[in-house]
Design a protein around this nucleic acid. Structure first.
Lengths: 336, 336
DNA sequence: GCATTTTATGAAACTGCTTACATCGTTATT
DNA sequence: AATAACGATGTAAGCAGTTTCATAAAATGC
């Protein structure tokens, strides 16, 4: 069933059918009804490819993320997909892995598929070296590129970021003020937001003259979810004689590893060991006491990201970078 | 840059360029190289819409799932996306929610987008009443429909299922044999696999003459992730005088709720309370002791699903239904 | 009541690619 | 050497829409 069949059965030209289909004005009520009746009768839907060819868009946004099964990224993808669809767009999902080369090729694939815009989910897409970020600039030459929790100053690239520095700064300060003078900081990524978080911890510790370089520990290179590994790492540290009464982790999974360590070693949480996680994920409810964690308002970020993207696609001038503040959600693993 | 530009610059016809592009034979090495050079020089990529129109496919598979942020579904989506892409297909992701009407419209949307096939992720798409499943049969009239962890006997519908009945049967038996004569069963979904799991528990309990109707409890209608709610629910049961020394849950989240309950009430796990979860997710590592859980070989299921889909798309005869067995992974929450 | 504007409609060009068919030069067959 | 078969290439007809432009019809102005 094509537009020709419909036009024939309705006794009008294909142009008129097209106008009805696209809600164009300049169609009399009478013919409109006539055409609509035929369309409904035959359950006709216009061919998306032909439409795409004519309009040069299929109303599709590419979502690129390193690992869609990651708790936090999955949540982001979920919000993004829902909000895109509410705006009449579909999402094509592409998992790129953490490796630069596969990121590049995934990004190109999305462009080849003629998406209207691309959303890079997570901060792992931005590299230290500017030359490594060229692949994003190249993509932005074709379609607007949105960054979630990362920023890059380049034409046609827009960023929506949570203020990880301040969040971590304040969380660290809170822990210090609650009496913990030696909190360890654990991270596994040195990505855009990873660096900000680390800097926040560092700044807070420095402001209280408590910073020791050995207090900042990278568990993994890249991103991993491994609760037992974190517990084990802490055990080894303790065995080495490192003394600590607090753990601040750059994600909830590692914080849960600290919980496990505390449980295994008979430490009371938070009295003997205070713990703060990051992302305020469902994991915060998975332990006892509940895990205090920093909420970076993911849904708000995503909402804003989509709003911005829609604006850009409409040709509206939009802010190139937006920053939202996070918030420490206190549960049972922190002292007052 | 179009195929016309390339053909002109290479001094050949567009047909020849197209042949080179599609790796068709019957192009002399000389012209092939000539065309390829021009293509590379101008970084030409064929227009995907035009291609789609001509070939009537854009090599895209629709993935429908109720909630892509669900731990288990997110994992499934991840596997599926990766394997699809390894086969040269892209995925358009669509979150439908749990409501039948939105499922219907989401499914139609995918078909409108002219995907080559549709994968329904999770068992919530299959309903008790056959009339409620008609929307799937309708979709299957257009493109092959693959069901993950659900089955429907209909033309052009293929199912890949884990043997939840047996898994749950054996897990329940294991718990009984370990000495727990009164395990409670918790579920929140009466979907396809939800029913199988429940039946497995029921069969095992009946075989030992231990079944009591009050032992099977539905925490929520539909699917939810709520650890504290589960803990609270158990507290209330205990307060009412219900006696139980084991909990079998139809997902890990609820099992974790049982862990929380045990911890809050000073119960030893597994001595006072044995616990078995389902899905063998990362949550099993998030508590101490580690949660015993049923692994239903999700990656294997996904692999098989994609293999089947690819076969179907190639016109090969493929099995309409495949069943894989699961396995209880024993960690610390079960007795021997 | 005639000129002018507005509204409704259709014809045809256009989007960029695939492919069936035609053509032509070149080997292989007898 | 004539003919058949084949390989390489081009021509042109799809694919199924959108949209510009022309035109006819209706509504408005004076």
């Amino acid at each position: 069933m094509t537009i020709y069949d419909i036009s024939e059965k309705a006794g009008v030209s294909i142009a008129t059918v097209s106008r009805v289909l696209n809600g164009s004005s300049n169609v009399s009520e009478k013919t409109k009804k006539k055409v609509l009746d035929v369309i409904n009768q035959y359950e006709y839907t216009p061919n998306a490819f032909a439409r795409g060819l004519g309009l040069n868009t299929m109303k599709t946004i590419g979502i690129l993320c390193p690992d869609s099964s990651d708790l936090y990224l999955a949540k982001a993808i979920y919000y993004i997909e829902r909000k895109l669809r509410a705006n009449g767009y579909d999402s094509i999902l592409c998992c790129s892995g953490y490796d630069l080369e596969t990121k590049k090729s995934s990004l190109n694939l999305l462009i080849t598929k003629k998406v209207d815009g691309i959303i890079l989910v997570g901060s792992s897409y931005i590299y230290e070296k500017d030359t490594d970020n060229k692949y994003i600039c190249d993509a932005a030459l074709q379609v607007p590129v949105m960054l979630l929790n990362a920023a890059l100053d380049a034409p046609n690239v827009y960023s929506v970021v949570s203020d990880d520095f301040t969040s971590m700064y304040e969380a660290t300060l809170q822990m210090i003020n609650s009496g913990v003078k030696d909190p360890l900081y654990f991270y596994n990524s040195t990505s855009y937001s990873g660096k900000k978080k680390l800097a926040g911890y560092r700044a807070a510790m420095e402001s209280k003259k408590l910073l020791k370089s050995g207090n900042m520990l990278q568990l993994y290179q890249g991103s991993h979810e491994d609760v037992p590994a974190m517990a084990e790492h802490l055990s080894k540290l303790a065995a080495k004689g490192v003394i600590f009464h607090g753990v601040i982790a750059s994600d909830d999974t590692m914080a849960l590893g600290a919980m496990k360590y505390a449980k295994e070693n008979g430490l009371r949480v938070p009295e003997d060991l205070a713990i703060i996680g990051y992302n305020n994920s469902m994991l915060t409810d998975c332990c006892d006491p509940g895990l205090s964690s920093i909420d970076n308002k993911l849904e708000t970020l995503c909402q804003h990201l989509i709003t911005t993207l829609m604006g850009v696609l409409n040709g509206t001038e939009m802010p190139k970078q937006t920053l939202f503040s996070g918030e420490l959600i206190k549960r049972g693993t922190t002292l007052d």
